[in-house]
Amino acid sequence: MRIMAIDLGEKNIGVAVSDQLGWTAQGLDTIKSTGKITGDLDKIKELVEKYEVERIVVGLPRNMNGTIGPQGQKALDFAARAARHLNLPVDTWDERLSTAAAERLLINADVSRVKRRKVVDKMAASIILQDYLNARVKKT
C-alpha cells in the first residue's frame, strides 16, 4: 500500500510517498500553493494517480503543549477536504518540529541555504511519513 504525506505550508506543500510495501518514505515534490484548497488538491490528485496512492497523511501542527492552533485547524480542514476530493482515507499526524528536524539534517549534510529552501518542505513530509510508517509497524 503506497501512502502519501503532505506537509502544508503557506506558500509550499511538501509531498512524500512510501514505497509500495509502506516501509520507507521518499521526498517527492514541493508544490507551490495556489492559495486555494481545491487548486492545491488538484495538483495533489495528479500525484496520487501517478503513484497509485491509497492513503494520505497530513501533517498536523500542534502547539508544544499539544493543543491545536490556527495552523492546526487549517491542516484539519485541509485533511477533511482532501478525503472528499481524493476519495481516499486521510489521517493526520503530529508534525511538531518536523520542519526544524529537516532543516537540521540538511545543515548537517552541509546543504547550502539556497538548496535547503528548495527541499526542506518535501524533506519535512518525508519525516512525517517515516514517523507515521514506523508507528504503524509498531502496532502490528
Results as ranks from 00 to 15, higher is better:
I3D: 06
L8P: 08
E10Y: 04
G14M: 01
G14Y: 02
V17N: 08
D19W: 02
L21P: 08
W23F: 13
Q26C: 07
L28F: 11
L28M: 10
S33C: 07
T34S: 14
G35Q: 10
I37H: 04
G39D: 13
D40P: 04
L47C: 04
V48P: 03
K50L: 13
Y51H: 14
R55F: 01
G59Q: 05
L60G: 07
P61I: 06
R62Y: 03
N63P: 03
M64V: 07
I68V: 15
I68P: 03
G69Y: 06
P70L: 11
K74T: 08
K74Q: 15
D77I: 12
F78V: 10
F78W: 04
A80N: 10
A80W: 06
A80I: 09
A80T: 14
A82L: 00
A83I: 03
N87E: 13
L88A: 10
V90Q: 04
D91M: 03
L97F: 09
S98G: 08
T99E: 12
A100L: 11
A100G: 08
A100D: 14
A100C: 08
A102P: 03
R104E: 15
S112I: 09
V114T: 15
V114G: 05
R116V: 05
R117C: 07
K118S: 13
A124M: 00
A125S: 13
S126R: 07
S126I: 02
I127F: 00
L129T: 01
Q130H: 04
Q130D: 11
Q130G: 06
Q130V: 05
R136W: 00
R136F: 00
K138P: 01
K139R: 10
K139A: 09
K139Y: 02
T140I: 05
T140V: 07
